[in-house]
């Protein structure tokens, strides 16, 4: 009895040793900074003078409708537009390619690599590449459009087309969701399709009545991670447009970055960060709350299957 307890104690102590990198990292790089961030959000911290407590002033300024005081509503609109137009398109395209690839075709490996390749790469190089593709006069996109008789817009230099341009660029990375959907599709039992066929279901009906419900947990996962990722968009707007023209692509994180690291308005930037966090939490809670209505889990019926 006594010996057994010491074995458990050893195991527990060893566990904390193994966990220690993350425990320290969590405290030093997540928990303490978050508390500090909350504290600074009530101050005028600016790296030069010692922070003074200014109450809710940062938050009052943040929600101001005056463009010279706060770009909150503007950046929230831009980021939401980019996310809620871009992510569904991205998912639809990814799903479409995945369904095509799942048709027992030849050359699956080659096609999969080609479609997945763009989502492996990211960062400044890709942003520069697309800035050049979107070039109003010498870019390849307007050249291709001119071949079918369309005179393309100025894209990144046009207030109305800059956000759609970023969305198009983001679609090039649809291979990421495609890959996850493809794995999900391969997990759907073929008997379900055979049963549907016996009942005389059309291809279309099979897609909506079998594929979509069976894939809904995967769609749910991709949706949540893509939306969270999309809200963090920074590099493309920083490199390609610097938030312009006329703030049309000024995204939330880019604004936060500018406030903190160009104007050194740290206190205000911290209030932005906290509001951003609350928006994400509220949004995630909403999606999870709504999920029983449209996400179909096998375990709901089979029962007991725990992943």
């Amino acid at each position: 009895m006594k010996r057994k307890r010491t074995i458990h104690q050893i195991e527990e102590m060893t566990a904390y040793v193994f966990l220690s990198p993350w425990l320290i990292g969590f405290l030093a790089f997540v928990a303490i900074p978050m508390v500090l961030s909350l504290f600074y959000s009530f101050t005028d911290a600016n790296m030069l003078t010692s922070p003074q407590f200014i109450g809710l002033k940062n938050y009052r300024n943040l929600f101001s409708f005056d463009d010279t005081v706060s770009l909150f509503w503007k950046t929230l609109y831009n980021t939401s537009f980019y996310t809620f137009v871009g992510v569904p398109l991205n998912i639809a395209l990814g799903l479409f390619i995945a369904v095509l690839l799942n048709q027992k075709i030849r050359g699956l490996g080659v096609f999969r690599t080609i479609y997945y390749l763009p989502s492996v790469i990211s960062g400044v190089a890709v942003s520069l590449l697309w800035a050049w593709i979107f070039h109003p006069h010498f870019g390849v996109l307007n050249h291709l459009l001119s071949l079918v008789g369309i005179s393309g817009p100025a894209w990144l230099f046009d207030e109305a087309w800059a956000k759609p341009a970023l969305i198009i660029m983001n679609l090039w990375g649809a291979g990421g969701s495609m890959l996850i959907f493809l794995a999900g599709l391969q997990g759907i039992p073929t008997q379900l399709y055979e049963a549907a066929e016996l009942d005389g279901a059309s291809t279309w009906a099979k897609f909506w009545k079998v594929t979509i419900p069976m894939l809904s947990p995967t769609i749910f996962f991709v949706l949540v991670t893509n939306i969270i990722g999309s809200f963090q968009v920074f590099t493309s707007s920083y490199v390609m447009t610097a938030g312009g023209p006329n703030n049309a692509t000024m995204m939330y994180v880019l604004w936060l970055f500018n406030l903190a690291f160009q104007q050194f308005n740290m206190g205000f930037a911290c209030s932005l960060a906290w509001v951003y966090l609350l928006i994400m939490v509220a949004f995630t809670a909403l999606v999870f709350k709504s999920s029983p209505a449209w996400v179909y889990y096998e375990s709901d019926i089979v029962g007991g299957r725990k992943s």
């Binding site: 900074p33 960060a273 906290w274």
Partner: peptide, 23 residues
């Protein structure tokens, strides 16, 4: 602890960006 890990997976690092810079 595992729950905290899952939460921090979702946490955007922009929230801690400014105080981390100060530290």
């Amino acid at each position: 602890l595992f729950f905290i890990l899952l939460i921090t997976m979702m946490l955007p690092h922009q929230v801690t960006m400014v105080p981390l810079y100060m530290i």
